[in-house]
Structure formats: C-alpha cells, structure tokens
Nucleic acid binder design. Structure first.
Length: 606
RNA sequence: UGGGGCGUAGUCUAACGGCAGGACCCAGGCCCUUGGAGCCUGUUGUGAAGGUUCGAAUCCUUCCGCCCCAGCCA
C-alpha cells in the first residue's frame, strides 16, 4: 500500500472526472439545494474554450515541455477593430492562463500596403486594451535574411524553383477547383540555375513581376495552396522598416509559419480561412526541419449592424462615409475608445462571446450591454438637457439660488455628493412634456405634478406657445417649498422624476448622438447587385448643438465618461474647446418608455 | 463539381455516452427620487432520417444546408 490519504476531496474529484465535468456536477448539486442553503455556485472559473482545452491538454502531456507561447500577428495595413480585440484577448489570455507569454509580431511582408502610422496605432490600441508584450515586439521583416537563407536551402534540396511565368499565366497553369494544374515549363531548372537566378532577383536585376520563386510541391494537389505556391515576388518598393534594402519580398504564406517557428511559438492561433494553408505551413516546416508550432483555427467575429473587415473599413474611411478610423461609429478600437467604450467592457465582451469554429453574427446589443454594465458601476451621474424647454417657477423668489445635494453614483456611495444650483428659470427636456399626454405617459403635462431630481415637486400651470408655429416654447409652473430635496412631508408620491438644469448656471454643449452604422443586421445582405454601403444608416449621427449641462462639468477633460441621468453614457470628445464641451453618446440607457412607445405605435398601425 | 470546415432557442456559447445549462434579446412582475440600476419569473433549441446502446447533441451511415479556397493580399 502506498501512503495515499484516504479522504476524497474536490481535487480528487477534479483529477478523476476532469475539471469541467466536475464543476458541472457540483453546480447541478448546488442547484438542487439552492433553495435551502446559501451556497454560491462555482462560477468563478469560466469554462475553457476549445482552444484552451487543447492547450491545457498539451500542457498536461508536457508537449513543448509544458511551455505555452502565443503571438498576436497583425499586418500594419489598417487600424485594429473589435474582431482583432477577440484575437488579442484570446492570445494574451491563453498566455496568461497557462503561465506563458504572448509576442506582438507585425506581419509586414507587403511594403505597398503597410505604414508606420498603422504600427503606432496598433501598439497604442493593444496597450489601451490592457495587454503587455514587454520587450517581445517583433517584425516579420526582422527575419527577411533568415527567410532568404531558408529559401536557398529549399532550392538546394530541389524543392523550390524560379519561375518566369507571368501572374496571369501562373493563374492559368494552376487549374481550377475540379481540374488539376499543369507544371510550369520552368519547373525543372537546375539547382545551379535556380540559385543564380534567385540571387540575381535579390540583386535587383529583374523587373517587378517578371520572376517569382515557387515551392515545388504538386500541381495536381486537390488543395490549391499546394500547387507550387509563390514564395517570393519582385517588388521594387520601399519598406517602412527595411527601406530599400530588399526588392524581393516573401509572401505571407512563406513568412508566417517560419516567423512563428523562429519565435518558438507553441500554439499559432489564427482564423478559419487559414485552415487550408496549414498543410503548406507544415510542409515548409518539415522541409526545413525546424521548430513546429501547432496551428489552431477559430471563427472570426462578426457583429451585427457593422462591418468587421479592414478592407471595408478602409473603404468607409477613404470614401468619406466616416470622419476617419477613429470615427465613434467605427467598430475600430480607436473609434470605440473615442466613443467612450472602456477596455474592461471590450475584454468582457470578448470573454462572453466565446470562441468556436462556426460562423457567427453576434448581436451588437451584447456589446452595448457590456459597456452599460461597466459604466453603470463607474460613471458619475450628471444632469444634462439635450433639447431644452424653458420652465419658469412663478412662485420661486426671483434672484434666489439654492445649492442642492446630488448623489454622484447610487451604485457607489464612495463617489460622494456634489452641489447643483437651482433657480427660478430652468430647462427641462422637451420630450418630458406633453400638452395632451398619451397613454401611459406620466411625465409633465398641464395640471400635473412631477419631481425635479434632487429639487422640488413642481406643477404645470400654464403654457406659452410660439404664435406662428404653435410650438410650446415655455412652461409656467409652481413649486412646493415643502418638497425640497424631492420628498413630500405628507408622503404623497409623484409618478415621474425629471432631470433639469438651471438656465443661468448651465453650460452650453454639443452632443453627438450615434446609432448603428448600418440599418441591416448583416450589411452584406443586399438586393441584387446593390452595394453593401447601400445599407449604411443615414441617421447614424445626429448632432445637437443647443444642449445645456450642469456647471460641475466645467472642467470635464477629454475622454471623461459620465451618465447623463435618464439618457445614457456620454464621453467628452477631444473636439471640446474652452467655450464649448462636446460629448459623444457611448450608448443610451435602456429605455422602457421608448420601447413602450414603439409597441404602441405598432399596435396603432395594425 | 475537387479540397477544407461548420450545423444546439431570435443571437452567442456550454454539455466530451448519463437531468440540454449560461449570457444577450424579448415578455411579465417586485422595487425605486433615473421609465436607469438591481432582484424574481417566463417563452423558445440539438438541420433531417435511419442505426448502435439500458441510455445519443455526443458514436456510425445516408441526406440536407451554410462558410472558405482558383492573389505575385493577409
């Protein structure tokens, strides 16, 4: 007998059944006793996704000596978007979970599309999201010499050749999905000739497009990627890092796997479309007999009512449909940052949507939920009137100003209190008054009493209208001095509480209201022949210039986030100047009244 | 049509031969000085048909549907 303890605890359970199954059992058991006991379910550890399961298993079996090393490999040809955030969270997250590290590597193999500006923005965005690659900042262009030497090695093995076919001819020789390709007439050049030609390609003796280096694999392979893929092309272009040192550049397929290998990556995580390329990467690595990372593919993220491909985002920027990569309507990290999203909310979103292999279209409501949830806990409350309607309190002493106490955040008493000035002339929200109140509208109307938040109960006594338009321009009300702070001593209740600002003390502000960028959940869904941009939402931006905000906002700094009570979360835009605050609406509050109105309207239509 | 992948509520995702669970959305209720937040309740699901099994989302067979690949882009 060994000296194994007799007790049977959680860890034995874990060891025998596996973690996930064990937690499921415990939770099931707890659910049964939930009504009787005060026990919390075990949910502190979110279940592992399928990639993490693979890594966990590799770790357990001591593959790569238990080492876990991932990388995030962007091409610096555009700004990062929410889809990249998913990949970043995945790669850095796995490294963190399994005590490994994650590299940042720029896959900069195409000088004609890549720029330093993109490199800088990518680094800023990853840092802002909260991830740290320490000193592991790499570039595929760092490996150009090694890649070249490896290409020479393949030529020597008779596994690569210089081909003089034009791009068009290569396409024709490649065959189709159903028909095999034909061998290039240059496929059987001697090793010596290939070596000489490849060397002269590097030396700049040939025109762009006149020659390429190709792997010699199998022109009849059912996988098109194996039909003698191009490894090097001639490109007399200036590279953002290597300048004019090179005039031949490796293709992504030739560079990517070896770059991972050089960095000692254990798990190369990428998106589904590279699944077909894996046999090619494996072939290269096997021919070279170098470290062989394991590639695992997952489905890229799609989000409803927006587009998440760099190509389309670039098009929106270049054609002026948005103001730039950081337009707050863009699903880019920089756009979302400017819009007021927090890194925490984005990371949380990436956690919740999970990782799998099936195509997906995540409802943008999930993203909005995540940022509301975060900002609800953290954003200080403040009062702002977006579309002002003048209210005069006739029985309030002229010239009197009271400083009323207001709570900064009911979710967090630690955020303290502030003073808000109250006076005889106020502004309230236009939509908080109806002359002829509709069904279930319980805000201000003639003869009705409501509460002004942190202020007094007021009753609407009279309406002033514009003689020409008939539009209500001013309300005359009376207040009940006994209700200061918002409570009636006799205990009587009012059904509505309105936000307000003091006309004399409030500050002017511009507010930018954003809606979904596209009207359709899937912008690609178009009637025959129409462009995806025809689904652009014409009302995705509304600018309100007559807004008034409470004076405590005077020193609000760009980037600061607030909840405008009863309206939503707003973020100070860098466009703000000394005289004028500019706010972006990050997301509205959940609005049951608006939803009610919608259903009422629908019911009326039918 | 060749190759590669994928089908679990309206959406996303768990369950690894053993009670189909969670989140979002939606609907209702409680509470309330935000029609906010919070709390409670509810509706809806294994693409289809066979087979193996005491037991199938899970294994097998057939079928159906969707996505990716014919860049010297990544």
């Amino acid at each position: 007998m060994t000296g194994k303890p007799v007790g049977f605890g959680l860890f034995d359970c874990l060891a025998i059944l596996g973690r996930a199954s064990c937690i499921a059992r415990i939770n099931r058991a707890l659910k049964k006793v939930k009504s009787t006991g005060n026990i919390k379910p075990v949910d502190s550890v979110s279940p592992l996704n399928f990639i993490e399961n693979i890594v966990a298993e590799d770790s357990r079996r001591n593959k790569y000596r238990g080492r876990v090393h991932t990388r995030f490999p962007p091409e610096p040809n555009g700004y990062l978007h929410i889809g990249h955030a998913k990949s970043i969270c995945l790669n850095f997250g796995i490294a963190a979970k399994f005590s490994g590290v994650c590299n940042l590597r720029f896959d900069d193999t195409n000088p004609s599309k890549e720029e330093t500006e993109y490199v800088e923005s990518i680094k800023e965005d990853i840092r802002w999201l909260g991830f740290d690659w320490e000193n592991r900042e790499f570039y595929a262009s760092d490996y150009f010499e090694q890649l070249y030497q490896w290409a020479v090695q393949l030529i020597r093995k008779g596994k690569a050749y210089v081909c003089d076919l034009s791009a068009e001819e290569i396409r024709q020789y490649r065959g189709t999905l159903t028909e095999p390709g034909r061998n290039s007439p240059y496929r059987n050049r001697s090793v010596e000739e290939n070596l000489d030609l490849f060397c002269r390609m590097r030396a700049g003796e040939f025109e762009d497009g006149s020659k390429v280096l190709r792997a010699k694999i199998d022109m009849a392979a059912p996988n098109l990627n194996m039909r003698d893929p191009v490894m090097y092309r001639i490109l007399h272009a200036t590279h953002h890092r290597t300048g004019d040192k090179w005039c031949i550049y490796p293709t992504y397929d030739w560079a990517h796997g070896q770059s991972d290998s050089i960095e000692g990556i254990t798990h190369s995580i990428c998106t589904l479309e590279f699944e077909d390329h894996r046999p090619l990467y494996d072939w290269y690595l096997d021919q070279l007999e170098v470290h062989h990372p394991q590639q695992i593919e997952f489905a890229r993220l799609n989000v409803s009512h927006t587009v998440v491909t760099k190509r389309k985002l670039l098009e929106l920027v270049n054609q002026g449909y948005v103001s730039g990569w950081d337009d707050p309507r863009m699903p880019t990290i920089s756009g979302m940052r400017r819009r007021g999203y927090t890194p925490e909310s984005i990371r949380n979103f990436c956690d919740r949507i999970g990782v799998a292999k099936r195509d997906n279209l995540v409802d943008i409501a999930m993203l909005e939920h995540c940022v509301r949830e975060d900002l609800n806990r953290r954003a200080p409350r403040v009062m702002a009137v977006l579309r002002p309607l003048r209210v005069v309190i006739d029985n309030y002493p002229e010239g009197q100003v009271e400083e009323l106490d207001a709570v900064n955040n009911p979710e967090d008493p630690g955020m303290g209190m502030r003073k808000v000035p109250f006076s005889r002339v106020l502004d309230i929200e236009q939509e908080d008054f109806q002359e002829e109140p509709s069904r279930k509208f319980f805000r201000l109307a003639p003869g009705r009493e409501v509460r002004l938040r942190y202020g007094y109960f007021i009753t609407c006594k009279d309406i002033v209208k514009d003689e020409k338009t008939g539009e209500v321009t001013e309300l005359h009300c009376t207040y009940d001095p006994a209700t200061r702070g918002g409570d009636a001593p006799d205990g009587h209740k009012v059904k509505a509480t309105l936000h307000w600002v003091s006309a004399e003390h409030s500050l002017p502000a511009e507010v930018r209201l954003y809606d979904h960028l596209f009207t359709k959940a899937d912008p690609a869904e178009v009637r025959d022949g129409a462009d995806w941009k025809s689904n652009l939402n014409p009302d995705s931006l509304k600018v309100l210039k007559e807004c008034r905000v409470e004076p405590s906002l005077a020193d609000a700094a760009p980037g600061a986030r607030y909840q405008f009570e009863r309206q939503g979360y707003f973020c100070v835009d860098p466009d703000s100047s000394d005289g004028l605050l500019v706010f972006n609406r990050t997301v509205s509050l959940r609005d049951t009244w608006a939803r009610l109105q919608k259903t009422q309207k629908k019911a009326a239509e039918h």
